[in-house]
Amino acid sequence: MIKRVVNVLVLIPVGIVLIVLSVANRQPVTLALNPFRPEDSVLSTTAPFFVYLFLATIFGLVLGSLATWFAQGKYRKRARVEANEAVKWHGEAEKHRTRAEAIASQAVVPVSGK
């Protein structure tokens, strides 16, 4: 529940800001990737400024997701190891339960005869 509230409190304002910036920044902007010759058209692209805003946002989301994924890798590995151990111990308990039931069924209950 708290996660949903935080998402709403963060994502809705970010979305509103992006929409407002998109509407306000529709003029074309040239992005030059060659710092020594910015007029070089091979390494430059022209697009509305809001396209660059959206691309930067998407890039940040992907980069943040990857950082989170790699940071949580040790926890996922630990969960896999513990799940495998739980399966192993569950199988071991089943084996002992079956063996105990077999021993109990073979035990002869003495009947007192009168």
Score class of each variant (00 low, 15 high):
M1Q: 14
M1P: 12
K3S: 15
K3I: 15
K3D: 14
K3G: 15
R4S: 09
V6K: 14
N7K: 04
G15L: 09
G15T: 06
V17T: 13
V17C: 13
V17F: 10
L18T: 03
I19D: 04
V20T: 09
L21I: 07
L21D: 09
L21R: 09
V23F: 15
A24C: 11
Q27S: 13
Q27Y: 13
P28Y: 05
T30Q: 01
L33T: 00
L33V: 00
N34H: 03
F36S: 11
F36T: 10
P38A: 10
S44P: 01
T45R: 13
T46S: 11
T46K: 07
T46P: 05
A47I: 03
A47W: 06
F49I: 03
F50R: 02
V51K: 02
Y52A: 04
L53F: 04
I58R: 01
I58A: 09
F59N: 04
G60F: 14
G60M: 15
L61Y: 09
L61I: 12
V62C: 05
V62R: 06
G64E: 05
S65W: 14
L66M: 13
T68K: 10
W69L: 14
F70Q: 11
A71N: 06
A71G: 02
A71L: 03
G73F: 05
G73P: 00
K74H: 12
K74L: 06
Y75N: 09
Y75S: 11
K77Y: 10
K77W: 11
A79Q: 04
A79E: 06
R80Y: 05
R80L: 09
A83K: 06
V87H: 03
K88F: 12
W89F: 15
W89K: 08
H90C: 10
E92D: 15
A93K: 13
A93M: 12
A93F: 12
R97E: 12
R99K: 15
R99S: 09
A100K: 08
E101G: 02
I103Q: 07
A104C: 01
A104L: 06
A104W: 04
S105N: 11
V108Y: 14
V109L: 12
V111K: 14
G113T: 15
G113A: 12
K114T: 06
